[in-house]
C-alpha cells in the first residue's frame, strides 16, 4: 500500500511538472526559445492567488482565475517587450534576455512581496479520501491536481488539433515562413502561445503551492528547471511528451526520495535524464530529424 501511496504522490507531483512543462514545450515548439522566465511566472501566479484569497478573501476559484488572467497578460507583455524585438536575433541572445526577465520577475516579487515565506492556503481544503480501510489516503489536492492535468491535456490536444488557432500554432512551429505565406499572423500566434503557456503556469503555481505551501520569490525556479527537464525528457516540442516526461519525472523523484535517499533525489532524477538522452537523444517522444547534407 505504501508503494501505491508513493505512486499516487509521484503522479500528483508529475502532473504539476507536466502542466509547467507544457508551457516550456509549446513556447519552444513555436518560438524555438528556452523561456527561462517561465518558472517565475508560476511564482507570480501563486502570489496573485495567495493575495486574492487571504487578503481580499475572494473565493478560491476567483483567485485562481484572477491569477490566470494576470499571468496571461504578464506573459503577453513580456513577449511583446522583451522577446519580440529579438525575433531575428541568435538564440543565445534570446536566452540571456529570458534570464534577464527571470531576474527581473524574482526581484520585483522580492520588492513587492518581501522575502518572508508566505503560507499558502490550499485552494481545495485539506480533506482526504481514505480507501482500503484507511490504508491508502489521497488528499483532495492530489485529486484536483491529477484531474486538472488530465483536463488541460485533453483541452490542449483538442485545441491544437481542431481549432483554427491551434492549427496555426502547429503550422508556425513547422515552418514560420511558409505559415506566413498561407496568411497566418505569426506574431499573433506566438503571442497566443505565450498567453496559453503563462495561463497554465498560473494554474501550476496554485497547485504547486497547495501541495507544498511555502511561497517565496524563488518558489518557481527549481520546479521550473525540473519541468524544463521533463519537457526535454519527453521530447521538447511535443505535447504528449511533456505529459509523459512530467509524470515520469515526478514518479522517479518521489520513488528516489522514498526508497533511495531524500538528499540525493535530485541527483538521481538528473542522472536518469542523462541516461535517457544517451539512449534516445531527442527525448522519449521527440522526433529524430534526419540531417540532410
Amino acid at each position: 500500500m505504501t508503494f501505491l501511496n508513493f505512486l499516487i504522490g509521484g503522479i500528483s507531483l508529475g502532473s504539476i511538472y507536466a502542466i509547467i512543462a507544457l508551457g516550456y514545450t509549446m513556447v519552444y515548439g513555436i518560438a524555438k526559445m528556452l523561456n527561462f522566465a517561465h518558472g517565475d511566472v508560476i511564482m507570480v501566479g501563486a502570489y496573485i492567488c495567495f493575495y486574492a484569497i487571504s487578503r481580499f478573501s475572494l473565493p478560491p476559484l476567483v483567485g485562481v482565475l484572477l491569477a490566470m488572467f494576470v499571468c496571461t497578460v504578464l506573459g503577453m507583455v513580456v513577449e511583446r517587450l522583451a522577446y519580440k524585438p529579438l525575433r531575428a536575433a541568435p538564440s543565445l541572445a534570446v536566452l540571456i534576455t529570458a534570464i534577464g526577465v527571470s531576474y527581473f520577475l524574482q526581484n520585483a516579487a522580492l520588492l513587492l512581496w518581501s522575502s518572508n515565506p508566505k503560507v499558502f492556503p490550499s485552494v481545495v481544503g485539506t480533506g482526504k479520501v481514505a480507501l482500503f480501510g484507511g490504508e491508502l489516503t489521497i488528499t483532495h489536492v492530489t485529486i484536483v491536481t491529477i484531474v486538472s492535468c488530465v483536463v488541460i491535456m485533453l483541452a490542449l490536444t483538442w485545441f491544437t488539433g481542431k481549432t483554427k488557432m491551434g492549427k496555426a500554432m502547429r503550422a508556425c512551429s513547422e515552418d514560420k515562413g511558409a505559415a506566413q505565406l498561407m496568411g497566418i499572423n505569426v506574431n499573433a500566434t506566438i503571442s497566443m502561445t505565450f498567453a496559453i503557456g503563462s495561463g497554465l503556469a498560473a494554474i501550476a503555481g496554485v497547485l504547486l503551492c497547495s501541495a507544498y505551501p511555502t511561497l517565496v520569490p524563488t518558489t518557481g525556479s527549481m520546479p521550473g528547471i525540473k519541468a524544463f527537464t521533463a519537457a526535454v525528457f519527453g521530447g521538447i516540442g511535443s505535447i504528449p511528451g511533456a505529459l509523459l516526461g512530467g509524470l515520469l519525472l515526478g514518479v522517479i523523484e518521489i520513488f528516489a526520495k522514498a526508497y533511495i535517499s531524500t538528499q540525493l533525489s535530485d541527483a538521481i532524477v538528473f542522472a536518469v535524464l542523462i541516461v535517457v538522452l544517451l539512449v534516445k537523444p531527442a527525448g522519449l517522444l521527440g522526433k529524430q530529424i534526419r540531417e540532410k547534407v
Partner: peptide
Amino acid sequence: RLKGDYLAIVTLAFGEIIKSI
C-alpha cells in the same frame, strides 16, 4: 553525442548532480 538544447540540458543536469553530491 547530443546537439543544441539537449546538450544544454545535460550540462544543466550535471551541474545539479554535482551540487547534490
